[in-house]
C-alpha cells in the first residue's frame, strides 16, 4: 500500500489523484461561478471521458459512462477526505 492509502487499479492512483484535484476545485469551490471552478470542471469532464474511452470501453464495453462517472466522483470525494491537509 502506498503512503496515500491507494492501491493500484486499471485506473492508476496518479490518475485518481489528478481527477480528485480537479473535482476538489469545482465541486467544493467557494465561488461556483468563478472561471477557475468552471475550467476545473471542464478539464475534469474531458479527462474522465478520455480515461473512459482509453481504459474502460475496451475492457468493459457493457459499462456505461454515467455509471463510471458516478463511481469516480464518489471515489474522488473519498480520496479527498482521506488526503485532507
Amino acid at each position: 500500500m502506498s503512503e496515500d492509502g491507494v492501491s493500484e487499479g486499471a485506473i492508476t492512483k496518479a490518475e485518481l489523484a489528478e481527477l480528485a484535484d480537479l473535482f476538489d476545485k469545482f465541486e467544493f469551490a467557494f465561488d461556483p461561478i468563478s472561471t477557475s471552478a468552471k475550467e476545473a470542471e471542464s478539464r475534469f469532464e474531458d479527462r474522465i471521458r478520455e480515461i473512459f474511452e482509453q481504459k474502460v470501453v475496451p475492457a468493459y464495453p457493457q459499462l456505461g459512462f454515467s455509471i463510471f462517472c458516478c463511481k469516480v466522483r464518489s471515489l474522488c470525494r473519498e480520496y479527498l477526505k482521506r488526503n485532507a491537509p
Binding site: 500500500m1 492509502g5 491507494v6 492501491s7 493500484e8 487499479g9 486499471a10 485506473i11 492508476t12 492512483k13 485518481l16 481504459k55 474502460v56 475492457a59 468493459y60 459499462l63 463511481k71 469516480v72 471515489l75 473519498e78 480520496y79 482521506r82
Partner: peptide, 9 residues
C-alpha cells in the same frame, strides 16, 4: 467491475 478503479485502503 472489480479492479477497474484504484482501491482506497
Amino acid at each position: 467491475p472489480k479492479g477497474l478503479l484504484p482501491k482506497l485502503n
